[in-house]
Design a protein around this nucleic acid. Structure first.
Lengths: 194, 194
DNA sequence: ACCTGAACACCGTTCAAGT
DNA sequence: ACCTGAACACCGTTCAAGT
């Protein structure tokens, strides 16, 4: 089934992660067993445990690799609303592409740890909107959460390509409602500090 | 370990679902194996297959059972914004409580099928806002998606009770931004129909 | 009609042993 | 230091057989 690479090169974490990533991309997370990964690497499955502590740690590394595909952020001079939209749609694309990994991350904080710092550019864009500081974190959360929810359910309904596209458009429309809300709330006063 | 009920009463779908629900509630989805369920029911594991096609079908039934716990909707005379908030927080509570099932539903449409029609009251509330009709569906989606994303990540960070509460509050604040956006967009004209 | 039990083809992980 | 292979304790599901 899986073409086994001869064990010429020594096993490294990088080779393990790359191979695992390919399996997940090609056949889904369900196809990624330690044994299958070993076969793909031309190595006894247990050899992997010498380099990676366990499957959860492996998934965290694969997640990190997947999120490195995020599109570059727009220039800081671009209006904040466009930057939010750019970030959210870019993240939507990545989550849709890597549904299984995102689900695993949502189920297991160890795996989620593979994708920290990914929200940096989103936070910057929201911050530039002039929203009261105490609304910055909840607003960031609501955008990220909306992406997760939308992209995950879109990826699950694996209908035709055309349909995924229309779900993406629907998300974009919903996102505009959030952006409109941010705009409205920039006028709100920050509650007084004690 | 699991106290086995003597096989006095005949096996029914209801008894199977109830027992499975209890296992998932008590020990998580990982603890729900067909064998464990059989033991809990005082029956050979394979007896379950006579009543339920497979594990996915079982999970769909358990999901349906879990979602029946949704709080009652507010009276139709209540302002739409409060009804949205009521629905979203109520759904947040259910999703947080049943994280594993929601994740399974997001991963598998068969399981998700267990929780249809749950958004009915949300749709009604958003509709009453006076939003242009073509924005109704994307707006409903964005609210549901935000709940999914937020509640799932909240449930994953199983810290103290206090912390879950603060994540719920953060979600509520983010939700207000969506509601503010809906308010703003009620003035938008519906694009002309061809 | 309803339930049993052996069997099949898998899992992740541990651990002693090899080179 | 790096890899192997047997073993342990599991999975979901099929299928022939029992009552």
């Amino acid at each position: 089934m899986t073409a086994a690479t001869p064990p010429s090169r020594p096993l490294t974490v990088d080779r393990i992660v790359e191979s695992a990533y390919e399996i997940v991309q090609r056949d889904g997370l369900g196809a990624l067993s330690m044994r299958a990964l070993g076969t793909a690497l031309g190595v006894d499955a247990m050899a992997i445990y010498y380099h990676v502590a366990n499957k959860r740690a492996l998934l965290a590394l694969v997640t990190e690799r997947a999120l490195s595909e995020m599109a570059e952020p727009l220039d800081r001079s671009t209006p904040w609303s466009r930057r939010i939209e750019h970030w959210a749609l870019g993240y939507w694309d990545v989550v849709t592409k890597h549904r299984d990994l995102t689900l695993a991350g949502l189920a297991d904080p160890t795996v989620a740890a593979g994708g920290l710092a990914v929200t940096r550019d989103l936070v910057a864009a929201i911050s530039d909107s002039g929203l009261p500081p105490d609304l910055l974190e909840p607003t960031t959360f609501i955008v990220v959460d909306a992406v997760h929810g939308s992209a995950l359910s879109a990826a699950s309904q694996q209908r035709e390509h055309a349909d995924i596209e229309s779900l993406r458009t629907a998300f974009q429309e919903g996102l505009r409602t959030i952006v409109a809300g941010i705009s409205t709330r920039t006028g709100e006063a920050t509650p007084p500090e004690p």
